[in-house]
Design a protein around this nucleic acid. Structure first.
Lengths: 102, 102
DNA sequence: TGCATATTTGCGCAAGTATGCAAATATAAA
DNA sequence: TTTATATTTGCATACTTGCGCAAATATGCA
């Protein structure tokens, strides 16, 4: 895993590794339809500007997608991308560098 | 997923979401035998005290295990724990709250 | 056009974090 | 005991980050 990959993966994990952002992700996770920011506001103890910033971080890391809808924005979780990123890392971590055990 | 779970999961991801710490984890990942801190020092651009601190964070999150060996400490990756944590999140994220799609 | 609502952005602040250096500690080996 | 090596810790510093507030922006609607 080269340096650049590590760096971008770190960015991804860092985006998820903040309580309120992870709460937002979990909230989105439980919704079957896209949500706007005002609605997401309620799940974490942050005002709307804070939520806006958190969502920006998440979308920059491709964790959520945004869709403009009139004066609102609909956010939805990029489920398969996020899950696959996590699984790739899980797999990498589980396999030994040199197959010398087992 | 209750608030406490989210919080501890965030801590776990945060520990992984720092470039140098993730580099250490990757380094350990590629090693089939436990490594000491001096050796791990080489894989990231941080001096030994920094590595010591990073490893402390990682072990606090149960990402690595430490074993005292004379004046050295041997660090090894808790592969199955880390992988399972990542997979649990991946699974949670992939499943819709209400089964309304597909 | 004028008002209401949703979201973003500038600003400042407080807290957290990563880092290197030097000193302290621990322990093996001479 | 003395010396050398590995690791930790205190300290200062620079940087980052999360936050709320207020103002700005965008857009729908009357």
């Amino acid at each position: 895993m080269d340096a650049q990959t590590v760096e971008s993966l770190a960015g991804f994990l860092k985006a998820l590794g903040e309580v309120n952002r992870l709460s937002l992700v979990c909230q989105l996770c439980d919704c079957s339809t896209p949500q706007n920011a005002m609605c997401l506001c309620e799940c974490c103890s942050v005002d709307s500007s804070g939520v806006s910033r958190h969502l920006k971080v998440l979308s920059k890391e491709n964790i959520v997608s945004v869709e403009k809808r009139g004066r609102e924005r609909s956010y939805s979780l990029n489920r398969s991308y996020v899950a696959s990123q996590l699984r790739v890392l899980a797999q990498k971590i589980e396999e030994t560098g040199m197959e010398e055990e087992s």
